[in-house]
């Protein structure tokens, strides 16, 4: 039973970490390689809040706002000139990630820090005891997914965003401010990144490179799932199943590369991945 929980919570964590990258790639076709650094920022936000004695639950909103602010600055200064050069945008955002990580290192040092989870202990569920905080991540992932789907499919902003995704020139000629849409999307995407950083810190430790280890997995997941958050949810579930099974029954280190290998194989066979269109 606990392996089922492992699969579900891993999938939830992957989804939480990937959603910000997905938001940005889905709308702008730009891979934000500073996503790893943004996750680290989230980790340090939670560290600072814990030092100040502010309870973790409030921090979630705060983390999102910090990330959105960082994202807004990045979009204005760095990403905007590179929309026409997607490969260069990967590189520039990676460089920006280096800068952010070094700033964090200068401020907080290289050492590993720990943050307590806002929810301690285990819950007894379906015959096993399982970490309550990890279990909470499952509904959190669903809530994030539902909110994003609602935002993109149920609001005026969502309609405009989808118009920009489908045909930017036409959308602009209809009076939609594509630049503004991108600005907002990028900020939300970065905000989701720091939120993810905050959410995962109680499960691991905080160090400047904590986000980078997640970056490649998140990148692979986005490439496989295309534009839709529902297909991302599905992909996370499938891949985390493989990852947990390989880690448990074969070798935990080899488990670390299952996502990369599966993603490469999936894309080779089906270049559009799991997306329907």
């Amino acid at each position: 039973m606990s392996i089922c929980f492992d699969i579900l919570t891993t999938a939830a964590l992957l989804f939480i970490v990937t959603s910000g990258l997905m938001m940005i790639f889905g709308v702008m076709q730009i891979v934000n390689f500073s996503h790893g650094a943004i996750i680290s920022v989230g980790g340090y936000v939670s560290f600072v809040l814990a030092q100040l004695g502010i309870p973790g639950w409030y921090g979630w909103i705060f983390a999102f706002l910090v990330g959105a602010l960082v994202g807004a600055l990045m979009e204005r200064l760095v990403v905007r000139p590179l929309y026409k050069r997607p490969l260069d945008a990967i590189l520039a955002t990676w460089g920006l990630g280096i800068v952010m990580i070094q700033i964090i290192t200068i401020c907080f040092g290289r050492g590993i820090q720990f943050v307590d989870a806002p929810l301690q202990g285990t819950w007894h569920l379906l015959g096993t005891d399982y970490s309550s905080y990890r279990l909470v991540m499952i509904p959190v992932a669903f809530v994030i997914c539902a909110l994003l789907v609602a935002l993109l499919n149920g609001t005026r902003f969502g309609v405009r965003t989808r118009a920009v995704i489908m045909n930017e020139a036409l959308a602009e000629s209809l009076g939609i401010n594509a630049g503004l849409i991108r600005f907002i999307t990028f900020s939300i995407g970065a905000g989701l990144g720091t939120l993810a950083g905050m959410l995962i810190t109680p499960l691991s430790s905080v160090d400047p490179y904590m986000g980078v280890t997640w970056l490649t997995s998140a990148f692979m997941l986005v490439m496989v799932s295309g534009h839709s958050f529902l297909s991302l949810l599905f992909t996370c579930l499938v891949f985390s199943t493989f990852q947990v099974l390989v880690s448990t029954y074969v070798n935990p280190v080899l488990g670390g590369m299952t996502i990369a290998v599966l993603a490469a194989a999936t894309l080779r066979i089906r270049p559009r991945g799991f997306s329907r269109d």
Binding site: I90, M220, V261, A264, P271
Partner: peptide, 25 residues
């Protein structure tokens, strides 16, 4: 044939990850 430039980029990321994990294990 017909591979996007992103795809080659992804594979070039997968290769070092795989090699790294193999060496670590």
């Amino acid at each position: 044939r017909g591979a996007s430039s992103f795809f080659a980029c992804i594979i070039s990321l997968v290769l070092p990850i795989v090699l790294n994990q193999l060496i670590l294990s």
